[in-house]
Protein backbone atom coordinates (compact mmCIF):
# COMPACT_ATOMS: atom_id res chain seq x y z
CA UNK A 1 0.00 0.00 0.00
CA UNK A 2 1.34 3.39 -0.88
CA UNK A 3 1.12 6.18 1.60
CA UNK A 4 1.17 9.01 -0.89
CA UNK A 5 -1.66 11.42 -0.16
CA UNK A 6 -4.62 11.25 -2.45
CA UNK A 7 -4.31 14.60 -4.27
CA UNK A 8 -0.94 13.72 -5.75
CA UNK A 9 -2.62 11.27 -8.10
CA UNK A 10 -4.40 14.10 -9.81
CA UNK A 11 -7.36 14.16 -12.06
CA UNK A 12 -8.08 11.60 -14.73
CA UNK A 13 -8.54 12.80 -18.29
CA UNK A 14 -12.08 13.15 -19.55
CA UNK A 15 -11.84 13.46 -23.30
CA UNK A 16 -14.11 13.43 -26.31
CA UNK A 17 -12.14 10.53 -27.77
CA UNK A 18 -12.65 8.57 -24.53
CA UNK A 19 -16.35 9.32 -24.74
CA UNK A 20 -16.47 8.16 -28.35
CA UNK A 21 -14.55 4.99 -27.54
CA UNK A 22 -17.12 4.21 -24.85
CA UNK A 23 -20.00 4.91 -27.20
CA UNK A 24 -18.59 2.70 -29.96
CA UNK A 25 -17.71 -0.12 -27.59
CA UNK A 26 -21.25 -0.16 -26.25
CA UNK A 27 -23.09 -0.17 -29.59
CA UNK A 28 -23.30 -3.97 -30.03
CA UNK A 29 -24.74 -4.39 -26.55
CA UNK A 30 -27.07 -1.45 -27.12
CA UNK A 31 -28.58 -3.21 -30.11
CA UNK A 32 -29.52 -6.03 -27.76
CA UNK A 33 -30.91 -3.48 -25.30
CA UNK A 34 -32.99 -1.93 -28.08
CA UNK A 35 -34.85 -5.21 -28.62
CA UNK A 36 -36.10 -4.87 -25.06
CA UNK A 37 -36.79 -1.15 -25.56
CA UNK A 38 -39.15 -2.01 -28.40
CA UNK A 39 -40.77 -4.59 -26.16
CA UNK A 40 -41.13 -2.02 -23.36
CA UNK A 41 -42.70 0.55 -25.71
CA UNK A 42 -45.15 -2.02 -26.99
CA UNK A 43 -46.13 -3.31 -23.54
CA UNK A 44 -46.43 0.25 -22.23
CA UNK A 45 -48.96 1.06 -24.93
CA UNK A 46 -50.89 -2.11 -24.18
CA UNK A 47 -50.92 -1.08 -20.50
CA UNK A 48 -52.42 2.28 -21.47
CA UNK A 49 -49.38 4.52 -21.00
CA UNK A 50 -49.35 7.45 -23.38
CA UNK A 51 -46.33 8.13 -25.59
CA UNK A 52 -45.33 10.95 -23.24
CA UNK A 53 -45.48 8.69 -20.20
CA UNK A 54 -43.60 5.79 -21.79
CA UNK A 55 -40.90 8.00 -23.27
CA UNK A 56 -40.47 10.04 -20.06
CA UNK A 57 -39.98 6.82 -18.18
CA UNK A 58 -37.29 5.67 -20.61
CA UNK A 59 -35.51 9.04 -20.63
CA UNK A 60 -35.70 9.93 -16.93
CA UNK A 61 -35.85 6.60 -15.10
CA UNK A 62 -33.76 4.81 -17.74
CA UNK A 63 -33.65 1.41 -16.03
CA UNK A 64 -34.98 -1.49 -18.07
CA UNK A 65 -35.78 -4.01 -15.38
CA UNK A 66 -37.58 -1.58 -13.08
CA UNK A 67 -39.52 -0.09 -15.99
CA UNK A 68 -40.82 -3.49 -17.04
CA UNK A 69 -41.72 -4.30 -13.44
CA UNK A 70 -43.45 -0.92 -13.13
CA UNK A 71 -45.68 -1.85 -16.07
CA UNK A 72 -46.82 -4.82 -14.05
CA UNK A 73 -47.94 -2.57 -11.19
CA UNK A 74 -49.32 0.17 -13.45
CA UNK A 75 -53.08 0.58 -13.42
CA UNK A 76 -55.98 3.03 -13.23
CA UNK A 77 -55.38 3.42 -9.48
CA UNK A 78 -51.69 4.27 -9.57
CA UNK A 79 -49.81 2.66 -6.64
CA UNK A 80 -47.46 5.63 -6.39
CA UNK A 81 -45.44 4.55 -3.38
CA UNK A 82 -45.11 0.89 -4.39
CA UNK A 83 -43.88 2.01 -7.80
CA UNK A 84 -41.20 4.28 -6.34
CA UNK A 85 -40.16 1.85 -3.61
CA UNK A 86 -40.00 -1.10 -6.02
CA UNK A 87 -37.91 0.95 -8.41
CA UNK A 88 -35.42 1.78 -5.68
CA UNK A 89 -35.17 -1.83 -4.50
CA UNK A 90 -34.77 -3.23 -8.00
CA UNK A 91 -31.93 -0.76 -8.56
CA UNK A 92 -30.08 -1.32 -5.28
CA UNK A 93 -27.42 -3.28 -7.16
CA UNK A 94 -26.34 0.05 -8.69
CA UNK A 95 -25.04 1.11 -5.27
CA UNK A 96 -22.37 -1.58 -5.40
CA UNK A 97 -21.68 -0.94 -9.08
CA UNK A 98 -21.12 2.76 -8.48
CA UNK A 99 -18.91 1.97 -5.50
CA UNK A 100 -16.81 -0.37 -7.64
CA UNK A 101 -16.06 2.48 -10.06
CA UNK A 102 -15.30 4.93 -7.23
CA UNK A 103 -11.47 4.77 -7.53
CA UNK A 104 -11.70 6.32 -10.99
CA UNK A 105 -14.81 8.47 -10.44
CA UNK A 106 -13.30 10.09 -7.34
CA UNK A 107 -10.56 11.44 -9.59
CA UNK A 108 -13.04 13.30 -11.78
CA UNK A 109 -14.83 16.52 -10.88
CA UNK A 110 -18.04 15.90 -8.95
CA UNK A 111 -20.12 17.22 -11.84
CA UNK A 112 -18.58 14.83 -14.36
CA UNK A 113 -18.71 11.86 -12.00
CA UNK A 114 -22.29 12.31 -10.83
CA UNK A 115 -23.41 13.35 -14.31
CA UNK A 116 -21.93 10.19 -15.83
CA UNK A 117 -23.60 8.07 -13.15
CA UNK A 118 -27.05 9.12 -14.35
CA UNK A 119 -26.36 7.09 -17.51
CA UNK A 120 -24.86 4.03 -15.80
CA UNK A 121 -26.58 0.74 -16.66
CA UNK A 122 -25.54 -2.86 -16.04
CA UNK A 123 -24.15 -2.96 -19.58
CA UNK A 124 -22.21 0.31 -19.64
CA UNK A 125 -20.95 -0.34 -16.10
CA UNK A 126 -19.56 -3.74 -17.06
CA UNK A 127 -17.90 -2.46 -20.24
CA UNK A 128 -16.33 0.49 -18.42
CA UNK A 129 -15.14 -1.66 -15.59
CA UNK A 130 -13.30 -4.07 -17.88
CA UNK A 131 -11.94 -1.22 -20.00
CA UNK A 132 -10.54 0.67 -17.01
CA UNK A 133 -9.13 -2.58 -15.62
CA UNK A 134 -7.32 -3.10 -18.92
CA UNK A 135 -6.02 0.47 -18.92
CA UNK A 136 -4.61 0.01 -15.43
CA UNK A 137 -2.99 -3.27 -16.38
CA UNK A 138 -1.17 -1.55 -19.22
CA UNK A 139 -0.22 1.32 -16.93
CA UNK A 140 -2.28 3.72 -19.03
CA UNK A 141 -4.49 6.43 -17.57
CA UNK A 142 -8.18 5.61 -17.54
CA UNK A 143 -10.29 8.02 -19.56
CA UNK A 144 -13.23 9.23 -17.47
CA UNK A 145 -15.26 9.88 -20.60
CA UNK A 146 -15.62 6.17 -21.34
CA UNK A 147 -18.40 5.60 -18.79
CA UNK A 148 -20.44 8.53 -20.10
CA UNK A 149 -19.93 7.46 -23.72
CA UNK A 150 -20.97 3.89 -23.04
CA UNK A 151 -23.97 5.11 -21.04
CA UNK A 152 -25.03 7.49 -23.81
CA UNK A 153 -25.00 4.65 -26.35
CA UNK A 154 -27.42 2.62 -24.23
CA UNK A 155 -29.47 5.77 -23.52
CA UNK A 156 -29.85 6.64 -27.20
CA UNK A 157 -30.84 3.14 -28.23
CA UNK A 158 -33.19 2.72 -25.24
CA UNK A 159 -35.00 6.01 -25.85
CA UNK A 160 -35.31 5.49 -29.61
CA UNK A 161 -36.45 1.88 -29.31
CA UNK A 162 -39.09 2.78 -26.70
CA UNK A 163 -40.54 5.31 -29.14
CA UNK A 164 -40.40 2.78 -31.96
CA UNK A 165 -42.16 0.13 -29.89
CA UNK A 166 -44.86 2.53 -28.76
CA UNK A 167 -45.57 4.06 -32.15
CA UNK A 168 -44.83 1.46 -34.77
CA UNK A 169 -44.74 -2.07 -33.59
CA UNK A 170 -48.08 -3.79 -33.69
CA UNK A 171 -46.90 -7.16 -32.58
CA UNK A 172 -43.54 -8.50 -31.57
CA UNK A 173 -42.14 -11.97 -31.50
CA UNK A 174 -40.72 -13.30 -28.32
CA UNK A 175 -37.02 -12.28 -28.40
CA UNK A 176 -36.22 -15.82 -27.22
CA UNK A 177 -37.27 -17.13 -30.62
CA UNK A 178 -34.11 -15.61 -32.09
CA UNK A 179 -31.92 -16.43 -29.13
CA UNK A 180 -31.78 -12.73 -28.25
CA UNK A 181 -32.71 -13.36 -24.64
CA UNK A 182 -29.31 -15.04 -24.41
CA UNK A 183 -27.40 -12.03 -25.78
CA UNK A 184 -27.10 -10.46 -22.32
CA UNK A 185 -25.92 -13.68 -20.71
CA UNK A 186 -23.32 -13.95 -23.46
CA UNK A 187 -22.12 -10.36 -23.01
CA UNK A 188 -21.75 -10.59 -19.25
CA UNK A 189 -20.07 -14.00 -19.56
CA UNK A 190 -17.52 -12.54 -21.98
CA UNK A 191 -16.90 -9.57 -19.68
CA UNK A 192 -16.37 -11.90 -16.72
CA UNK A 193 -13.84 -13.90 -18.75
CA UNK A 194 -12.20 -10.57 -19.67
CA UNK A 195 -11.50 -9.96 -15.98
CA UNK A 196 -9.44 -13.18 -15.99
CA UNK A 197 -10.29 -14.34 -12.46
CA UNK A 198 -7.40 -15.85 -10.54
CA UNK A 199 -7.15 -18.70 -8.10
CA UNK A 200 -7.88 -16.36 -5.19
CA UNK A 201 -11.15 -15.36 -6.88
CA UNK A 202 -12.52 -18.90 -7.07
CA UNK A 203 -14.12 -18.94 -3.63
CA UNK A 204 -15.82 -15.52 -3.93
CA UNK A 205 -17.06 -16.45 -7.41
CA UNK A 206 -18.43 -19.77 -6.18
CA UNK A 207 -20.16 -18.02 -3.28
CA UNK A 208 -21.63 -15.41 -5.62
CA UNK A 209 -22.87 -18.05 -8.05
CA UNK A 210 -24.52 -20.17 -5.34
CA UNK A 211 -26.19 -17.18 -3.69
CA UNK A 212 -27.43 -15.87 -7.02
CA UNK A 213 -28.87 -19.26 -8.00
CA UNK A 214 -30.65 -19.58 -4.65
CA UNK A 215 -32.00 -16.02 -4.74
CA UNK A 216 -33.15 -16.36 -8.34
CA UNK A 217 -35.06 -19.45 -7.32
CA UNK A 218 -36.80 -18.01 -4.27
CA UNK A 219 -36.98 -14.21 -4.73
CA UNK A 220 -38.63 -12.16 -7.47
CA UNK A 221 -37.01 -9.50 -9.60
CA UNK A 222 -33.31 -8.72 -9.58
CA UNK A 223 -32.56 -9.59 -5.96
CA UNK A 224 -30.27 -12.36 -7.13
CA UNK A 225 -27.66 -9.87 -8.39
CA UNK A 226 -27.47 -8.11 -5.04
CA UNK A 227 -27.47 -11.42 -3.14
CA UNK A 228 -24.66 -12.84 -5.27
CA UNK A 229 -22.60 -9.65 -5.08
CA UNK A 230 -22.85 -9.51 -1.29
CA UNK A 231 -22.03 -13.23 -0.93
CA UNK A 232 -18.98 -12.85 -3.17
CA UNK A 233 -17.80 -9.77 -1.32
CA UNK A 234 -18.28 -11.35 2.09
CA UNK A 235 -16.48 -14.51 1.02
CA UNK A 236 -13.53 -12.41 -0.10
CA UNK A 237 -13.58 -10.25 3.02
CA UNK A 238 -13.55 -13.24 5.35
CA UNK A 239 -10.69 -15.06 3.65
CA UNK A 240 -7.17 -14.35 2.47
CA UNK A 241 -5.16 -11.15 2.55
CA UNK A 242 -5.95 -8.17 0.35
CA UNK A 243 -4.40 -8.31 -3.06
CA UNK A 244 -1.46 -6.03 -3.57
CA UNK A 245 -1.97 -3.01 -5.76
CA UNK A 246 -0.50 -3.39 -9.22
CA UNK A 247 2.68 -1.36 -9.56
CA UNK A 248 1.29 1.16 -12.01
CA UNK A 249 0.95 3.94 -9.48
CA UNK A 250 -2.36 5.03 -10.93
CA UNK A 251 -4.47 3.99 -8.00
CA UNK A 252 -4.86 5.90 -4.78
CA UNK A 253 -3.25 3.90 -1.99
CA UNK A 254 -6.20 4.33 0.29
CA UNK A 255 -8.69 3.19 -2.26
CA UNK A 256 -10.37 -0.16 -2.47
CA UNK A 257 -10.86 0.22 -6.07
CA UNK A 258 -8.07 -1.64 -7.46
CA UNK A 259 -11.09 -3.85 -7.55
CA UNK A 260 -11.19 -4.57 -11.20
CA UNK A 261 -7.62 -3.69 -11.89
CA UNK A 262 -6.03 -6.45 -9.95
CA UNK A 263 -8.12 -9.22 -11.32
CA UNK A 264 -6.47 -9.78 -14.57
CA UNK A 265 -2.96 -9.47 -15.85
CA UNK A 266 -2.54 -9.62 -19.58
CA UNK A 267 -6.13 -9.91 -20.69
CA UNK A 268 -7.55 -8.34 -23.78
CA UNK A 269 -10.35 -6.05 -22.74
CA UNK A 270 -13.46 -6.76 -24.72
CA UNK A 271 -14.13 -3.04 -24.69
CA UNK A 272 -10.91 -2.32 -26.50
CA UNK A 273 -11.60 -4.57 -29.42
CA UNK A 274 -15.27 -3.81 -29.52
CA UNK A 275 -14.47 -0.37 -30.85
CA UNK A 276 -12.89 -1.80 -33.99
CA UNK A 277 -15.65 -4.22 -34.42
CA UNK A 278 -18.82 -2.41 -33.66
CA UNK A 279 -21.09 -3.76 -36.33
CA UNK A 280 -24.45 -4.77 -34.92
CA UNK A 281 -25.40 -8.39 -34.74
CA UNK A 282 -26.67 -9.69 -38.02
CA UNK A 283 -29.64 -11.37 -36.45
CA UNK A 284 -30.74 -8.45 -34.26
Amino acid sequence: MQTTPLPSFGRLPFTLSGLRAGFRACIPVSVGVAVYGVLFGLLARQKGLSFLEAESMSLFVFAGASQLIALDLWGPELPVFSLIATTFIVNLRHVLMGAALAPQLLRLSAGKAFGSLFFMTDESWALTLTRWAEDRRRGALCDGGFLLGAGLAVYTFWGASTALGHVLVRGLDDPARYGLDFAFTAVFTALLVGLRPRRADVLPLAAATCAALLAARFCPGKWYILAGALAGGLAAASTGPAKANPPDGTSPGTSPGTAAGTAAPGATAPGATAADNAQPKADA
Binding site: R93, L96, M97, A99, A100, D122, A126, L129, A133, D181, F182, F184, T185, F188, T189, L191, L192, L195, P197, D201, P204, L205, A207, A208, T209, A211, A212, L213, A216, R217, Y224, I225, A227, G228, A229, A231, G232, G233, L234, A235, A236, A237, S238, G240, P241, A242, K243, P256, G257, T258, A259, A260, T262, A263
Partner: peptide, 25 residues
Protein backbone atom coordinates in the same frame (compact mmCIF):
# COMPACT_ATOMS: atom_id res chain seq x y z
CA UNK B 1 -8.38 -4.26 4.62
CA UNK B 2 -11.63 -6.20 5.02
CA UNK B 3 -13.75 -3.69 3.14
CA UNK B 4 -10.99 -3.43 0.56
CA UNK B 5 -11.16 -7.18 -0.06
CA UNK B 6 -14.95 -6.94 -0.14
CA UNK B 7 -14.91 -4.21 -2.77
CA UNK B 8 -12.21 -5.94 -4.82
CA UNK B 9 -14.41 -8.99 -5.17
CA UNK B 10 -17.57 -7.07 -6.10
CA UNK B 11 -17.11 -6.60 -9.87
CA UNK B 12 -16.53 -10.25 -10.72
CA UNK B 13 -19.17 -11.31 -8.18
CA UNK B 14 -21.78 -9.07 -9.82
CA UNK B 15 -20.94 -10.40 -13.28
CA UNK B 16 -21.10 -14.00 -12.06
CA UNK B 17 -24.42 -13.32 -10.33
CA UNK B 18 -25.98 -11.74 -13.42
CA UNK B 19 -24.94 -14.74 -15.49
CA UNK B 20 -25.60 -17.59 -13.05
CA UNK B 21 -29.39 -18.09 -13.29
CA UNK B 22 -29.64 -17.95 -17.08
CA UNK B 23 -26.38 -19.85 -17.60
CA UNK B 24 -26.76 -22.62 -15.04
CA UNK B 25 -30.44 -22.90 -14.16
Amino acid sequence: PRLTRFMQAIPAAILASIVAPSALA
